[in-house]
Design a protein around this nucleic acid. Structure first.
Lengths: 213, 213
DNA sequence: GCGTAAACGGATAGATTCATCCACTTACTG
DNA sequence: CAGTAAGTGGATGAATCTATCCGTTTACGC
C-alpha cells in the first residue's frame, strides 16, 4: 500500500512552487488572513492552473508551509538540549522560539488552516513534544523554574508571545522581547541577559496596534 | 449639524435587533471568525431584509457589539479606582478585565471588524485610556509594580490573556487564571489571592487547543 | 377598532469567487 | 537535437455570496 513514487519536479515547476509558497506566506503575513489561490497565483505572476496543479486546495498549501516551520522548531529544541545547565537550556529554547515566532507573522494563519492530523506533520508534533518535555523535566529537577511548571506552559507561552508579536509587528518590532522577560520572571526563571529588553511601548505605539477598518 | 432624531424602535423591531446581535455574537464566538449577514439572519430566525435594514453592513453590526463591550471595561476601571490601596486597585482591574475578556470569545472578531474611529466609541476609548493611566500612575507611585511599568503593558497583557483564553476556552475554561498570575508576578505584583489559580493544563488539554481542520 | 407608518421576509439580480480544462510551451532524455 | 512527457496560463461555467426591492404583516396612536 506504499505510494512513494517521489519523482523530482522539473526545474521550472520547482521554481514556481517556491515562488507560490513565498508569495502566499508574504500575503498571509501582510493581511493576517487567508488569500484565495487565484489571488496568490496572480500576485506570484503564474497562472491559476499552475497553482491548482501543485496545490489542489488551500489546505495542501498550508500543510506545505506548516512542515517548513515545524522543522525550525525541532532544530531549536535540539540546540537548546545541548546546553549543559538545565535552566539555561530551558531559557534558551523559550527565548529563541519566541524570536522565531515573532519573526513569522503568517504562522497563526497557517496553523489555522493546515491539517495537523495529516502526515508528515503528525510525527513531527510528537517528536517536538518529546524534546520540549525533556527540557522541562531537566529544568524542574534543577529547580530552575517554579514547581508546577509544565510543558503545556511552554505552548501557552508561545501562544501569548505570538499574539503580542503579531499585533505589535508593524509598530514596535521588538516589543515581544519585553514580554518574554515578563513571562520568564513569572515562571520563576531569570530573565534573558544576552540582550537588553526594550522599555514599554508608548501610547502612540499601542494606538497603532488597534486593528484598522 | 446635529442629527439626533432618536425615534424609539417599535417593540418587534427592538426585539429583533437584540436577537440579531445575540445570535451574531454567539456565531462569532463559536467559529472564531465572521459570519455573513445572511447566515446570521437565518440563524436568528428573521428575514435577511430585517437584518440589512437594521445593520446596513457588517461594520455597523460590529460597531453596535463593540459599544456594548466597551461600556463594561469602563465600569471595571471605575470600580477598581474606588479601591483605597493602589496595588490592590491595579490588580483588581487586571484580574477582572481578564475575567471579562476570557468570557467573551467573540471580542477579537468584533474588534477586527468594527470601525474604531467611528463615534461614539472614539470618545469611550479616550476615557478608558485616562482611567487606566490613573490606575497605573497610582500603582507606580506606591511602588506596587516594577519600575517602567506602563499603561501599554495593560493592553499587551489583555492581548496575551485574550489569546490564551480564546484558545483554551473549550478545553480548559479557567486556564487563563494561571497566566494572569504568571503575568502579575512578571510585572512585580503579588498574584491574586481571592481565588486559587488552576494547575498547568495536561498534555491532552493542550492537544485540544490546536486548531481543527 | 381603524388607519397608517413601520417593520417584515425572502425571491432574486448582480457581483464575486472557485476550480476545471485544454491548446500551447518548455525542460529533459537518449 | 529530435521526441515527448511535464508543465503552463487563463478563459470560462458553476457555485456561492451580497444586498435590494416590494407585496404582505404588525404595532401603536387616536
Amino acid at each position: 500500500m506504499s505510494e512513494d513514487k517521489e519523482r523530482p519536479l522539473r526545474a521550472d515547476a520547482e521554481r514556481n512552487r517556491r515562488q507560490i509558497m513565498e508569495t502566499a506566506e508574504r500575503m498571509f503575513a501582510e493581511r493576517g488572513s487567508v488569500a484565495t489561490l487565484n489571488e496568490i497565483a496572480h500576485e506570484a505572476g503564474v497562472g491559476v492552473g499552475t497553482v491548482y496543479r501543485r496545490f489542489p486546495d488551500l489546505v495542501s498549501l498550508m500543510n506545505a508551509l506548516f512542515a517548513e516551520r515545524f522543522t525550525t522548531f525541532l532544530q531549536l529544541a535540539e540546540t537548546a538540549a545541548e546546553l549543559a545547565e538545565p535552566g539555561e537550556a530551558m531559557r534558551h529554547y523559550l527565548v529563541e522560539a519566541a524570536r522565531w515566532r515573532a519573526g513569522d507573522p503568517a504562522l497563526d494563519v497557517i496553523l489555522a488552516h493546515a491539517d495537523l492530523e495529516a502526515a508528515p506533520t503528525a510525527g513531527m508534533r510528537e517528536e517536538l513534544g518529546r524534546r520540549v518535555d525533556a527540557l522541562v523535566e531537566r529544568a524542574l529537577a534543577a529547580g530552575a523554574v517554579h514547581e508546577g511548571f509544565a510543558s503545556s506552559d511552554v505552548y501557552a507561552y508561545l501562544y501569548m508571545i505570538g499574539a503580542i508579536a503579531d499585533r505589535t509587528h508593524d509598530v514596535a518590532p521588538d516589543a515581544w522581547r519585553r514580554y518574554v522577560d515578563v513571562l520568564l520572571r513569572g515562571f520563576g526563571l531569570e530573565p534573558a541577559t544576552e540582550t537588553q529588553a526594550p522599555p514599554a511601548m508608548t501610547d502612540a505605539q499601542i494606538l497603532g496596534t488597534w486593528p484598522k477598518p
